[in-house]
Design a protein around this nucleic acid. Structure first.
Length: 641
RNA sequence: GCCGGUGUGGCGCAGUUGGUAGCGCAGGCGAUUUGUAAUCGCCAGGUCGUGGGUUCGAUCCCCACCGCCGGCUCCA
C-alpha cells in the first residue's frame, strides 16, 4: 500500500472523531476480532428477527450471513420483498434481542444431526454438501486439508450452522451501536444463474460513538460524491440519450485536458510516440484480435448493410498492431512505444453504470509497447517510474495487485513463469515486497498483469491503471521484428495505462480532494475580488500580469454582490487563491492572498506573491499553503467549509 | 441482465384522498458600491421522464419502456 496525505480531504471535526473507543495498548488485531465477533453475532440475531417478521407471510429460508469490513449482512429467501418498514421493525427487534442478553452456545454436531437440524433449509443443506465433501467452505471457497468440524451456534432458540467465532452473550453487544441499513438483491453464491436472494445489510460497532462516527463518515462521503461535485462545479453532465457517456463542460474539460497534457509531456520525455486510430473498424479486425469471440457483449455494433458490420473500439490494442505491421522493424527499433488517448466505448449491462466511475465512453492514457522478451524487465522498470511519478504527484492512496496465470490461459507455463517473475521482480524493486498483493489466477487470459487499485468516497475499490503482458495479440496479428542474426521474432506487447480511465481517475480525484483540485488543475486558479468598483482597474491590471505568468484568473466585479457573497462563491467553487483588492492594496501596491486551505497573507509584495503563485502551480503542489507557508501566521489545514 | 427504490422548472425539495402545481437557491431586471461564507425588491421559468390504459377528467391509479440511485453479477 502506497499512501500519503491527500489535499484537504482530512481534518474535519466529527462526533467521536478522536480515536473512538479503544485504549492505546489495544492491538488492531484484537479490535478487528472483537468487531468480527460482534458483527457475526448481529447477523445471527438479525436472521432471527427477519424470520419472525416474515414468518407469517410464508416460508423464510436463511442462506449465509458473514461480517464485513464495516458491518454484516444476511441473505434470505423471503415470501415477499423487504420494505423500509420491515427494516425499522427488524432493527428494533435486533436491539431488543441483544438487550435481553442471550448466550450464544456452540455445539459440535455430526453430519446426520446437522442434516436433521436444517432439514427445512435448502441453502444450509447446500452449505453442508460443500463442507462435507471437503472441498468448499461455507462461502463456497476451496478448502485444503480435511473436512472441518461441523458446528452450530444457538441463541434464544435460533440455531445457525456456523464456524464462529461469536460473542459469548448478546449482552456483550451494545444495542445502540447496531443499525440495520438497507436491503438489496444478491445471487445465491454470487452466481447470476442461481436464485436471487434478498440481502439485508447492517452495521455494528463497539460503541454508540463508533457507530455515529461511521454514519458521519457516510454522510461526508455523500458530500464528496463526484457526481454531486460535478454538478456543483459544472464539470460534466449526462443526458438520457447517451447513458454513461459523459459530456465534458468547459471547466471539466479543462481539468481533463490538463491531466492529458501532463501525461503527454511525461510520456514524450520517455520515448513514447502518440498515435490516433479509427474509432470503428470492420468486424473482421475484431475477429482477428479475438474480441468478437470474447468481448462482443461489450461492443457497440454498427450494421452498415447485410454484408458489413462495424464495431466501435472498446480497446486500442488491435489498431496498435495494425500500426506496427505497416513496415518491417529491427530489434534496434525496440522497445517501440505507441501511446493512444482515443475515446473507447464499451457497452455495459444496464444497472452497472456509476457516474464517471463506470461509463460507456471514456479515454485511457493507453500505450502499447512492442518489446523483445529479454527487455521486459527493464521496460517494466521504466513504466513503474512513471507510475510512481504520477501517483506521487497526486498523493492519492492506492494499492497494487498482481494477477497471475488463470486456470484458462494461452501460451505455455514456462513463458508465464518467466513473465510473472519479471513482474514480481520489478514490483519488489520499485515498489517494495510488502506493498502489493497477489491475486492468484486473476491475470488476463493472455498474460499476467499488475493493477493499480483505488477507493472511492464510499470505500468501494476500483481498478485504475494497469500493466499487462501480452504474448498473444502480436502472434495473432503476425507482428515480427528482425533480430541481429537476421531471423524474425514475435515481440511481446506490454499494454499499460497509468491513470487507467481518465473518467474514473477524475472521479476518484474529485472524491479524494472533495473538489479542491490541486491548483495546477483548477479551471480558475485565482479569484480577483475588487472591494468596490473603483478597484476594478487594479484587478484587471493584476489579471493581465497573472495571465503573463500563465495563471488562470477571473475578476469578480463588485456588481456581482457583496464582498462576502463573492468570497463565499469563490470558496464554494474551490478556487485555490483569492486576492481581495481594496484601498490598502491600491495604496501599498501589495496583495492580500487568501488561501483555499485556510490562512491569509496580507501586505504581500506583489511581484513576490505572483512568483509564488506561479511556482505553486508549475511545481504541481497539491495544496495552496506550501508556497506561502513561511508568510502565514496562522495556517489552518482542512478543506473548505 | 437480476433485486429493490426512484423520476415535479438549471439545482435542492413540497404537493394534489384524481379537477392541468408551489417553495428555496440559481437566472433576468431595478435599487444598493459593499474589506473576507449569502444586500433588498420585483419578474420570468414546469406539456410533473416517455408511451399506452382506466376515467367526464390523470402529474396523482394501472401497464410497458427509458433514465437515475443502492446492491448482485460483470468490469477501466
Amino acid at each position: 500500500m502506497t499512501s500519503s496525505s491527500s489535499a484537504g480531504s482530512q481534518g474535519h471535526s466529527a462526533p467521536g472523531h478522536s480515536a473512538p473507543g479503544h485504549s492505546r495498548d489495544d492491538l488492531p488485531e484484537d479490535r478487528e476480532l472483537r468487531l468480527r465477533r460482534i458483527r457475526h453475532s448481529c447477523a445471527h440475531v438479525m436472521a432471527q428477527a427477519t424470520r419472525e417478521r416474515f414468518g407469517s407471510d410464508g416460508p423464510v429460508h436463511i442462506a449465509t450471513g458473514p461480517p464485513t469490513e464495516t458491518g454484516f449482512y444476511y441473505d434470505f429467501e423471503l415470501p415477499r420483498s423487504v420494505v423500509p418498514e420491515d427494516l425499522e421493525w427488524i432493527e428494533e427487534r435486533v436491539k431488543q434481542i441483544i438487550a435481553e442478553g442471550h448466550q450464544l452456545v456452540r455445539a459440535e454436531v455430526d453430519a446426520a444431526t446437522a442434516r436433521e437440524i436444517f432439514a427445512d433449509e435448502p441453502f444450509k443443506q447446500e452449505v453442508l454438501d460443500g463442507i462435507l465433501s471437503g472441498h468448499l467452505d461455507d462461502n463456497g471457497a476451496l478448502l485444503e486439508g480435511d473436512a472441518p468440524v461441523l458446528s452450530t451456534y444457538t441463541h434464544n432458540g435460533f440455531v445457525d450452522l456456523c464456524a464462529g467465532p461469536h460473542v459469548d452473550n448478546t449482552g456483550d453487544i451494545s444495542p445502540d451501536a447496531v443499525k440495520v441499513l438497507s436491503a438489496a438483491g444478491a445471487y445465491w453464491r454470487g452466481d447470476e444463474k442461481r436464485p436471487m436472494l434478498q440481502r439485508i445489510y447492517g452495521t455494528a460497532w463497539e460503541s454508540r460513538e463508533q457507530l455515529d462516527h461511521f454514519l458521519w463518515q457516510r454522510s461526508e462521503a455523500e458530500r464528496r460524491d463526484h457526481r454531486k461535485l460535478g454538478r456543483e462545479l459544472d464539470l460534466f453532465m449526462f443526458d438520457q440519450s447517451a447513458p454513461g457517456m459523459p459530456y465534458w463542460l468547459p471547466d471539466g474539460w479543462h481539468v481533463l485536458s490538463r491531466l492529458l497534457e501532463f501525461s503527454r509531456t511525461e510520456h514524450a520525455k520517455r520515448g513514447y510516440r502518440e498515435i490516433s486510430t479509427p474509432l470503428v473498424n470492420e468486424k473482421s479486425l475484431w475477429e482477428t484480435s479475438g474480441h468478437w469471440e470474447h468481448y462482443v457483449d461489450n461492443m457497440f455494433q454498427i450494421p452498415i448493410d447485410e454484408h458489413r458490420t462495424y464495431g466501435v473500439k472498446p480497446m486500442n490494442c488491435p489498431n496498435a498492431m495494425i500500426v506496427f505491421n505497416r513496415r518491417t522493424w529491427s530489434y534496434r527499433d525496440l522497445p517501440l512505444r505507441l501511446s493512444d488517448l482515443d475515446v473507447l466505448h464499451r457497452h455495459e449491462r444496464s444497472g452497472t453504470l456509476q457516474g464517471l466511475l463506470r461509463v460507456q465512453s471514456f479515454r485511457q492514457d493507453d500505450a502499447h509497447i512492442f518489446v523483445a522478451e529479454d527487455e521486459i524487465g527493464p521496460e517494466l522498470g521504466r513504466i513503474f517510474e512513471i507510475v510512481n511519478l504520477f501517483y506521487g504527484t497526486f498523493g492519492m492512496e492506492h494499492r497494487l495487485r498482481m494477477g497471475t496465470r488463470p486456470t484458462s490461459f494461452l501460451g505455455d507455463v514456462a513463458t508465464w513463469d518467466h513473465a510473472e517473475g519479471a513482474l514480481r521482480e520489478i514490483l519488489d524493486g520499485s515498489i517494495g515486497p510488502d506493498r502489493y498483493t497477489i491475486a492468484e489466477g486473476d491475470g488476463a487470459f493472455y498474460g499476467p498483469k499488475i493493477d493499480i487499485i483505488m477507493r472511492d468516497a464510499l470505500d468501494r475499490e476500483w481498478q485504475m491503471g494497469t500493466v499487462q503482458l501480452d504474448f498473444q495479440l502480436p502472434r495473432r496479428f503476425g507482428c515480427t521484428y528482425v533480430k541481429a542474426d537476421g531471423t524474425r521474432e514475435t515481440p511481446v506487447v506490454v499494454h499499460r495505462a497509468i491513470y487507467g480511465s481518465l473518467e474514473r481517475f477524475m472521479a476518484v480525484l474529485l472524491e479524494h480532494t472533495a473538489g479542491a483540485l490541486p491548483p495546477w488543475l483548477s479551471p480558475c486558479q485565482v479569484a480577483l475580488l475588487p472591494v468596490r468598483a473603483e478597484h476594478e482597474p487594479l484587478a484587471r491590471d493584476i489579471m493581465e500580469e497573472l495571465g503573463e505568468a500563465s495563471i488562470l484568473a477571473r475578476v469578480v466585479d463588485a456588481s456581482a454582490g457583496s464582498l462576502g457573497a463573492r468570497v463565499r462563491e469563490a470558496r464554494l467553487q474551490r478556487v485555490p487563491y483569492m486576492l481581495v483588492l481594496g484601498d490598502r492594496e491600491v495604496a501599498g501596491g501589495t496583495l492580500a492572498v487568501r488561501l483555499r486551505e485556510g490562512g491569509e497573507v496580507r501586505g504581500a509584495d506583489r511581484g513576490d506573491a505572483i512568483a509564488r503563485l506561479r511556482g505553486a502551480i508549475q511545481e504541481r503542489h497539491r495544496t495552496t499553503d506550501v508556497a506561502f507557508a513561511d508568510l502565514l501566521t496562522d495556517v489552518e489545514v482542512g478543506s473548505p467549509r
